[in-house]
């Protein structure tokens, strides 16, 4: 569930639209793509590409786990949790660094958001490495 997430990726959203079909949906999808590429600043797009990479890594690991083996289950959990955790931390950074959300975060500047991101990632990867076994 957590892979159908909050990045504005065209493929994900088109699956959302086509699942329920309709003229408005396909219109809306094209509006969405256009609006996204027009209105999103470059650094958010950079974050989004990293998010996409994390999704792919997570899907790949999950597919391996389901199709081949889950034998060192702790290694799978560690690897998968690192992609999920990193994704979530990055998505948080994206939200906080987004100018549109400035009023939601009175006490968090983009620099502070980046600091939080670094702290969270270090803690996350400490646990990941400890759990790899």
């Amino acid at each position: 569930m957590n892979r159908s997430t909050k990045v504005s990726r065209p493929p994900v959203s088109s699956s959302a639209g086509s699942a329920s079909s309709g003229e408005t949906a396909s219109n809306a999808v094209s509006t969405l793509i256009k609006s996204y590429s027009d209105n999103t600043p470059a650094r958010l797009k950079l974050i989004d590409s990293f998010l996409l990479f994390l999704i792919l890594a997570g899907v790949l690991q999950f597919a391996y786990c389901v199709l081949v083996t889950n034998f060192p289950f702790n290694s799978f959990i560690a690897g998968f949790a690192s992609t999920v955790g990193q994704f979530v931390l990055l998505a948080s950074l994206r939200i906080q660094a987004n100018r549109a959300n400035e009023k939601d975060f009175p006490s968090v500047t983009p620099e502070r958001a980046f600091g939080d991101f670094l702290f969270g990632s270090v803690v996350l990867h400490f646990f990941v490495v400890n759990f790899l076994g």
């Binding site: 159908s4 997430t5 909050k6 959203s13 509006t31 996204y36 998505a91």
Partner: peptide
Amino acid sequence: QLVAFVELVRSHV
């Protein structure tokens, strides 16, 4: 995750 994604899409469309 789902709600946040949907909110983001809504802000664009």
